[in-house]
Design a protein around this nucleic acid. Structure first.
Lengths: 217, 217, 217, 217
DNA sequence: ACAGCCGGGACGTCCCGTTGAT
DNA sequence: ATCAACGGGACGTCCCGGCTGT
């Protein structure tokens, strides 16, 4: 969702959806298993050096089945299903809350919930999609979806049109800032405090991006 | 951008650097021809549906030669010949100019110079990119390239490290805002006043992204 | 035609055979629906570009069901539900009618009956076939199916073996001529008089294929 | 060429073309080797049971190379390069020769030359393309090319338009008859006298396709 | 009987590295 | 330096058979 490109079919989704049939749950497990093994192998060997066949073998499914779950190898990394979650989280905020506060909430508390579930995988995912150019491109395309969600929600909150110029600028700037926070978190190997980073980024935005000169040591 | 071993002088670069040997100029032309044809084909057919062989044929070189100029197909997109030019233009600004003003300059005057070079092609490319998500993503990836330049220049100006968190947030937010301006300009078919759009975007940034509710009519 | 184990009654067949059980009629409808959708898709996208899954979806059955009705995708094309009808129509001719007259009858009256059934669809199919070579070939392959019927009937009439060489030559030549008549009819958009065309073709055959030189105007 | 579907890049072609460069001859040899091994395997295992990988291995090339020479496995069977040969052979006949005589010549002497070269392979080819429905369709599509050649040549000879109805009927009937001859030859395992068969077929055509009743023994 | 899910395997496309000829 | 040819290997599509549940 936010920032760059991290999305997965995760328990978070399951919690929000109606209880699924037995069939569906099995499919979900398979899907997760494939992704899980994939990221494990990516971590060991790198994305490019890992073949679909290896992933399928590790997940104990046939290559055909792999492609039924993920149309391309790239989809392992770039798709997720967090947007509905993001949207309902945003809508749950009180109506009088100012736009940037809502964004901040989405980027901190919302993200935290998701991270608590799939921390390792999301981290791996970001690391990979930062490094493989082909994935960067696709990941950014997917990120467009989240942008649309933010635009829609804020459009309703502010009474502005979804293509209002100011609104678009604000969302784009906020997403840029949030992406930076996620990147920094990724670079720290997930050890940095994502909430602090996100807070700091949002504060910079609301205070007009001050950038005092600083003496390098 | 940065760090790519196949970097070659661009036409803009040529103006700034010492005149190159005849051999070099020929290679440059080939390189540009390949990239030119490649982007034309990408626009027509999409990136994935365009093969290296097609590009080579269109540029009238053999596939082997293609690979001499661009070690992989992705390099066509990843490298960016404009960056050196942008960098030197930014360095030419007065030392006391505040960071956001420099960003603004990069986004207006710098852009204008580049547009003067290839206005038709750039506008066409952006118009198409808007419709094909894959291309849009690619355009955004290209924009990412400039991030490094901005970071380096502002790092020197402010005395902050290139990976200083605040600096990165500011640059990312500004790039997001600037991209929105470019999008709006593209939507207008190039008829909108890019400088005004950019001004407005930067003003929003410096004033803390206010987003007053507005009654829809 | 002949020898295919999944032979089912056609609507024409239904008229000629005893009324079928309700179960049987339902199966027949499904079979026809599948084939109908299949040919529609073939016409739109070509045979190779149409998947079994698409056909099944268009016919609103599951892929599994598709394979129950047609063991392979090719069977869609290879089998021909019209043949039994053609056969019984031919057998109804008086015993003393000469072979070529029977052929002629098959190509005119027999054809007419079939056309009355599905005129629109057949004309449409042929028009499209003319433009797409792959489809044209397939139509010719379908025509091949009728060859067996003709051979069998004429074999009985003349007392020659079904694999009698002369008989086969005659049938093949006649079919070639008849196909030309059908082509000409198709080119005219169905407006030409198919009976006249067929007459002319058969006359040419019986008169030894004279082809006097003609001064071009 | 004629009849059904038999065509290959053979020495016959080589004899007719200008002497080729060394490079070209090597490619020809590779092409022939691939096809040769393919048909050998087809004879042993059947067409469907033989994989491209096996063929490539037998011909000692990589699968990639196989696909450079033959875009699909089907092309092994259905394409040839005899049409130019057919055309020039036809044109070499004296101007006053009647049309059916020319056809007869093409079907007997012309064919004999080709058969002398590649008898086994052509036989195998016909056997296969008679059995595999997918190939029948493609082979007939290829046969259209030969039909075009015949139409063009006879059009010039008779002064009739290429789309003259009588001309088309004659060519179609003749091709049907010739195909039957080839089929009979194929069924005999190549042991029948193709020239006699073709003669008989053409005689039937010129005598109006008589088909006297015959008492079966 | 019908549906969904999975496995196995062939096919064909494409990228990119290497080699040898020009 | 350029080209043409080839190899190796991954990817992704598709067909079809088999299995399970209803």
């Amino acid at each position: 969702m936010s920032g760059h490109q991290h999305r997965v079919r995760t328990p978070v989704g399951e919690l929000l959806e109606a209880p699924l049939g037995l069939r569906e749950r099995k499919k979900l497990r398979t899907r997760r298993a494939i992704r899980h093994e994939a990221f494990r192998l990516f971590a060991e060997q790198g994305y490019e050096n890992t073949t679909v066949d290896q992933i399928a073998a590790a997940a104990e499914v046939s290559p055909s089945t792999f492609f039924r779950y993920f149309p391309t190898k790239e989809d392992l990394v770039v798709t997720d299903d967090y947007d509905p979650f993001l949207e309902s989280a945003l809508r749950a905020r009180p109506a009088e809350e100012p736009p940037l506060a809502i964004l901040k909430f989405a980027m901190t508390e919302g993200l935290r919930l998701i991270l608590d579930e799939d921390r390792e995988e999301i981290l791996a995912r970001m690391l990979i999609s930062r490094q493989i150019p082909a994935l960067r491109a696709r990941a950014m395309a997917e990120a467009e979806n989240s942008r649309g969600v933010l635009l829609r929600v804020l459009s309703e909150r502010t009474g502005r049109a979804v293509d209002d110029y100011d609104l678009r600028v604000v969302v784009a700037a906020a997403l840029g800032a949030a992406t930076t926070a996620m990147d920094a978190w990724t670079e720290s190997g997930g050890r940095a405090d994502i909430v602090r980073l996100m807070d700091r980024a949002m504060d910079l935005l609301t205070s007009g991006l001050p950038l005092a000169a600083k003496r390098r040591d």
